[in-house]
Simulated assay, not measured.
Amino acid sequence: MSKLLAAITLIVSVVLTIAVTVICSVPIIAAGVSKLLLPFAAARRAISRFCDFIMYCWCEGLALLLHLNPGLQWDVEGIQKLNKKSWYLLIGNHHSWADIVVLCVLFRKHLPMNKYFLKQELAWVPFIGLACWALDMPFMRRYSKGYLLKHPERRGRDIDTTRRACEMFRFRPTTIVNFVEGSRFTEEKRLRLGSPFQHLLPPKAAGIAMAMSVSGLQFDKIVNVTLCYPQNDARPFYDMLSGRLRRVMVRVELIPVTDSLRGDYLNDKDFKRRFQHWLNALWHAKDMQLARLTSQYKKAGQ
């Protein structure tokens, strides 16, 4: 693709993405406000289903936008056993903003509508913040260890946020998404954090441990997703917008929810240690999987 065509595609993609987002956000926000005013639980649940439908329409819009990448190839394994009538906790590596587009587009017909654990700062993003609020997505506020030592009363607030969110999802199948690294992967972050992994940041166990303790009985499976962009590893989102995204590799693993994954992460040190060991082992396997995917692609291209 020429530089001129890539620049034109980038402009068209950005304009269409903003337009689709605004068009879908407005009815979601309006429905969210009306949900606040209605005293009937059945009516609020019906509005929530309407909001999920509009988000599905947004995912369809993103799917159309991906057609601006004419050479895009999907390499997906493990998606066949998913269904839209179950409750899932989805965890995955986080490489780029492209991850959210890929998850929304790929799973829109295979999983219940995705609900993301979001940083508190995203609540202030125009249209997106209010739409996510109307979609009942939980906003998580992160505190440093030093801050919690000075303000112990703040400890456990994310548990309350998680509990309230999961309570709202109890009446309809839902997929709760948590990028357990807590941030997008970069080589600079990997070195600064002293990550033991080659392709990943260290996983943060607290978020999914709290989700499991609050509503583990509700989840049918954990969906472990590995995302890889072997030809566009440096800047996949920019390449996606400019029509240069060439290959998306996705591997899906279903993990049974067992009693060993549920416990008091904050107060039970033995459970905390076991859960961290389980997640670190899972992340080690994911790191090796990413290395294999990258190696397989390079060999195929030779």
Rank of each mutant, 00 (worst) to 15 (best):
I47H: 00
R49S: 05
D52L: 04
F53N: 11
I54G: 00
W58N: 10
C59N: 12
E60L: 13
G61Y: 05
L62H: 08
L62S: 03
A63E: 12
A63N: 13
L66I: 05
L66A: 09
L68D: 06
N69Q: 07
P70D: 12
L72W: 07
L72A: 12
Q73N: 10
W74L: 13
E77L: 08
G78L: 10
I79F: 09
Q80S: 14
L89T: 04
I91L: 14
A98W: 02
L103I: 12
V105D: 11
H110R: 15
L111V: 10
P112Q: 10
K119A: 05
Q120E: 14
E121D: 14
W124C: 02
I128M: 07
L130Q: 09
C132Y: 00
W133Q: 06
M137A: 07
P138F: 02
R141A: 15
R142T: 02
L149S: 14
L149I: 05
P152Q: 10
E153K: 14
R155A: 15
R157L: 14
R157I: 10
I159P: 00
T161A: 14
T162A: 15
R164I: 10
M168D: 06
F169K: 01
F171W: 11
T175E: 03
I176C: 14
N178M: 13
N178V: 11
F179H: 02
G182R: 07
